[in-house]
Design a protein around this nucleic acid. Structure first.
Lengths: 202, 202
DNA sequence: TTTTTGAGTGAGTTTTTACTCATTATAAAG
DNA sequence: CTTTATAATGAGTAAAAACTCACTCAAAAA
């Protein structure tokens, strides 16, 4: 008889991953609107028909990737709600970001995809709302963490919300620079990234 | 007889500006590929035909906007080549950025457009090369400026190229945050933006 | 009121792109 | 070698988007 359930699943998973990987690269490099499904299929090494067997629309595919990225962000929110020392938490996070950015493209791609999801797209894009929400949570959470650190004397003074905003802006910008500059990109050291935490507000 | 040359030119300029403004907003908010010319014409309050009387293709229109943004960047490169005190130059620049970001969308839009131009688009996009070039010049110029500031004892230690990279990444990220967060965006103070210049490298 | 010139229009054409489906390929088991 | 279940194909279709052009409109001056 035919292949077993597991064998079929294996096959499906393999092509699914090929599609995701190809789509991620293209969406990041060219944006949603400027990427066409033929390209995705070509890069994945499969036919258009097969792509549509896995994803009902191009948008579905994009949404799955964005959803995946969003999940990553939520983990950060959770991390920052811990009772640990704010300085320790920020350091831990910055080092993770640093390592990820030095070792591969995954993190940078995810961050760019999130931005694309916000800046591309049509009409009432429910992604935008979702992302805005997670983003707000992240900023508020980080702001709280920084404030706590300031009260503990770990960080310098300054508007904590602005500091949080600055921090994630920098990380977002770095992700884009990494992809834009390729080999000319050299990830700034963690101490540069965290310097603003130790500077007195004016 | 008909209107004078000047009167016709006036008309043309007026619609040209309407087109540019509409296109800028849409390209920034939705990306090149996801913006269609009908929308641009609608937003500009003109017909498609008239749009095509001013720009041969949608791409031409995009390129003109990007070219305009690029010109702005070149001015910064020039500014940073001055013999003035690096600290003074950086401060001046940061304050300009701060004011622009607080008072309107223009700067943010231009920066996002530059990134779009890099991340959107097809095949051999000569814009990408041009932008990469200007970008490299900007980074190298700023790096040099920072190094000079370090030698003068104005700035703390640290890899000057990484510091320059960090700086522009932050500004780029802030531009995007501004558009994403809208009213929830609160521009970080200049002192937060320049803190990294005064922190010792590890 | 007519003429003149270039702005302005938008239905219609062309081109591109998302998506479908009738058909073929594959490999395990009888 | 046949059967069987599902992966895989890609020419073909439908929809969307870019772009054209024959025409109208507006206002200045004879």
């Amino acid at each position: 008889m035919p292949r077993t359930k597991d064998q079929f699943e294996e096959l499906r998973n393999a092509t699914r991953e090929k599609i995701q990987s190809a789509a991620m690269q293209l969406f990041v490099q060219k944006g949603f609107g400027s990427t066409n499904v033929q390209e995705i299929a070509d890069k994945a090494g499969i036919s258009i028909g097969l792509l549509y067997r896995h994803y009902k629309t191009k948008e579905d595919l994009f949404n799955e990737l964005v959803e995946y990225a969003r999940t990553g962000l939520r983990k950060v929110v959770a991390l920052f709600e811990s009772d640990e020392s704010p300085e320790k938490l920020m350091n831990q996070f910055v080092h993770e970001v640093y390592n990820d950015m030095v070792s591969g493209d995954e993190l940078a791609n995810l961050m760019i995809l999130m931005a694309q999801s916000f800046f591309s797209r049509n009409d009432k894009n429910e992604n935008q709302n979702e992302i805005a929400k997670v983003n707000t949570e992240l900023l508020n959470g980080t702001s709280k963490l920084i404030k706590r650190g300031q009260e503990l004397g770990e960080f310098g003074s300054g508007d904590s919300y602005e500091m949080a905003l600055f921090f994630f802006s920098a990380v977002q910008g770095l992700a884009e620079m990494k992809v834009m500059l390729k080999n000319n990109f050299s990830m700034p050291s963690p101490s540069i990234l965290t310097a603003f935490l130790y500077r007195k507000g004016e």
